[in-house]
């Protein structure tokens, strides 16, 4: 008897310990990165760090604006390309498609969501980059090497599709059948009941799926880094190279210990990513959390 209770106590303690460790992880990560980026924050004010575009680490000038702008631009393109397609495909899969197609699609989406980002990057180099330099850029009357913000956006859009589609179909499935039937019995067409009932009912869910897609796109590293060109500049032309924030961190880890404050700057970039993505996640997950509770 005693042994059983002892076992119970010890496992309970271990369970609570692991839970606390896991839940404290974001805090520990945040504090660790903050401590590391403290030297930089003492060196320059937050405002000049974020909104100036003078990036010369060897002279102690750290302006993060090109990277922040690059990240936002790439994410924006990815979002514009993938969101409407995801929404339509989500509607089709949950409302109109034959059950055979649906049965095939869900595992396929799952597998694609699990493909490593390097594979998407390879695909980007093989397909998207030549597509842009040979096809898309001439249409818009410019020339381009293909390693551009546009390429990063397209690859990201494709990467986000399985992720967002998963969540959107999940949301659509929670709409009660009765609501749709009521709308249909009042004489609405299928599309009308989708438009006025299903979409309206799952509005918060759709917004959160989009928001989380944006968060994922913002933090994606390898695939984007492989196709985006990695040049420090602020441009509004999507056929120019860009340099998103995660690519900055990943590209410069080798030299960061040789230049003073450089490591601190990279850790600051990671902290920035963490804060932005945590905020987006906290907000949109809260929507989902609320709808699940109801």
């Amino acid at each position: 008897m005693f042994r059983r209770i002892f076992f119970d106590r010890t496992t309970k303690t271990w369970m609570i310990t692991t839970m606390v460790i896991i839940l404290l992880m974001p805090v520990i990560i945040g504090v660790g990165l903050y401590l590391k980026s403290l030297p930089l924050l003492e060196h320059q004010s937050l405002r000049t760090l974020l909104f100036t575009s003078d990036w010369q680490p060897s002279q102690g000038k750290f302006g993060f604006w090109p990277f922040v702008a690059g990240s936002i631009y790439v994410t924006l393109i990815a979002f514009v390309l993938s969101a409407p397609v995801c929404l339509l495909a989500g509607i089709y899969l949950t409302q109109f498609a034959s059950s055979r197609l649906v049965k095939v699609m869900y595992p396929v989406i799952d597998i694609l969501a699990g493909l490593p980002s390097v594979i998407y990057g390879v695909w980007g180099i093989l397909v998207v980059v030549p597509f842009i330099s040979k096809f898309l850029a001439p249409i818009f009357g410019t020339t381009s090497s293909g390693y551009t913000i546009m390429a990063g956006g397209i690859v990201l859009a494709v990467m986000c599709v399985p992720y967002m589609l998963n969540m959107i179909t999940e949301v659509f499935k929670t709409v009660p059948m009765g609501l749709r039937e009521a709308s249909l019995s009042l004489g609405a067409t299928f599309w009308e009941s989708v438009k006025h009932v299903v979409i309206r009912k799952s509005y918060p869910g759709i917004i959160s799926a989009f928001g989380l897609g944006i968060a994922k796109a913002f933090g994606e590293t390898m695939a984007v880094m492989m196709v985006v060109g990695n040049r420090v500049q602020v441009h509004f032309n999507p056929f120019e190279a860009g340099y998103p924030l995660p690519a900055l961190i990943a590209n410069n880890y080798g030299e960061m210990l040789s230049i003073p404050l450089y490591d601190s700057a990279l850790m600051f970039a990671a902290l920035l990513l963490l804060v932005i993505i945590l905020l987006i996640n906290l907000i949109f997950r809260y929507f989902i959390f609320k709808t699940r509770e109801r």
Partner: peptide, 23 residues
């Protein structure tokens, strides 16, 4: 707790990489 875990899932791997480096 589920909500917090979902949020944790969203942290990009490069941030874990940078944190792992500081560790």
């Amino acid at each position: 707790i589920r909500y917090l875990l979902d949020v944790l899932w969203g942290i990009p791997s490069i941030v874990y990489g940078a944190f792992g480096f500081t560790l």
